[in-house]
Design a protein around this nucleic acid. Structure first.
Lengths: 206, 206
DNA sequence: GTAGATTTGTGAAACATTTCACAATGATAC
DNA sequence: GTATCATTGTGAAATGTTTCACAAATCTAC
């Protein structure tokens, strides 16, 4: 498939959210104009984004909400569930495990690892916390699709290396550090410091 | 000031992190090549990014680590501390309040608001949780620079509206919804769903 | 069935960002 | 002091993304 810009993929994700709202309201069809208004972009942008994947609309009418929902879910790979392993059972990990939206959107946390003896063996939202030393053993029994790294900065890279060796192809990293992986592995880093500093830059330069 | 791309600002933030590491190691100077290698970009990109703000290097030698650190902090507006209000005292809020990196980077949480009677009056990391109904009263006594919204989706927009009315110019939004604000207010949204869906897209289309 | 109103899909134009490539500058060795 | 080497700073070129603008398609009203 032709390379699609990340900005486009993020907007598809946004459109999906809006379409879910339209569906709840019982709206049958929606125009690119209406979708754009809801999300701070332009109708041309919406149509261009969709056009990379096919032509889903009806001229003069717009897009069928249920159909476009289905297409977007398919494009984004949401027609299935994903098995997620979480490495690190600290504050953020705890918040994520309890976040219902995770499961709601098709992502099931099926394993949690930590190094803290106090935590190992306890149940988190129904999932037992295991010793990170057992990660290879356990993950070979329970394969997963996505890893979430929520460790301190200095463990993040070694953990990522081990996950890559286990064959993981997608990592969501919350550790405040840049991790490096082979080209065929996707990493998304969520780094609070970046966001805060973008804000302080904006506040300063106005 | 000439408009700077957000991608550039994010990279500056990244360079800052690397420079802190170089400083810890006692490195005196660093070349654009070395900075680039550390962060998955190119030396030309590093030099171009910096060139928007001035010329801080020495040809043949590179950049002085302490000087560039100072310059970047200044550019990013990190030469001061910021007062932060947190609205919503749920799981994520709790994790953020306890996150030391926040204070470490110059952002002090000085007020927390929630609607939950059980939480109001309790102390969180030394800060009393107040009733969100008192927000206007309290924030007029204790002015703040940045707001972090950690409420459920349906309260996020009303809360944002109130914050904007109070004169806030920077919002970090963790609620899984797009919030709309006037042009002179900056909003950064951290939305887990986007990140997960970008990953599932990447896993699907390979 | 025709006319008029909507709205898509998409090339082309405009705009933005990244990469290239090299002159200019300073450091180092002898 | 001269030659060599390393590295910056920056226009220009290449590449990428967004916006424009309009033909084509479909709907609605009569």
């Amino acid at each position: 498939m032709r390379k699609i810009a990340e900005s486009t993929v993020r907007r598809l994700s946004l459109y999906l959210r809006f379409l879910e709202e339209f569906e709840e309201q019982g709206t049958e069809t929606v125009s690119s104009e209406a979708l754009a208004a809801r999300g701070g972009t332009t109708s041309a942008q919406v149509r261009k984004d969709l056009s990379f994947f096919g032509s889903f609309g009806k001229r003069g009418l717009g897009y069928s909400v249920p159909e476009l929902l289905g297409r977007l879910r398919e494009i984004l790979g949401l027609g299935r569930r994903y098995r997620v392993v979480m490495v690190g059972a600290g504050k953020i990990g705890s918040a994520l495990v309890q976040y219902r939206g995770f499961r709601q959107r098709g992502f099931d946390i099926v394993a949690i690892f930590d190094t803290d003896k106090e935590k190992i063996g306890t149940q988190w939202n129904g999932i037992a916390v295991s010793d990170v030393a057992q990660m290879e053993t356990e993950l070979s029994r329970t394969p997963v699709d996505i890893a979430v790294i929520v460790t301190p900065a200095d463990s993040a890279q070694p953990v990522a290396d081990r996950l890559v060796r286990l064959g993981l192809k997608a990592i969501l990293n919350f550790a405040p550090i840049q991790i490096s992986v082979p080209d065929d592995v996707v990493v998304k880093t969520v780094n609070l410091a970046f966001e805060l500093e973008t804000l302080s830059y904006a506040l300063t330069n106005r």
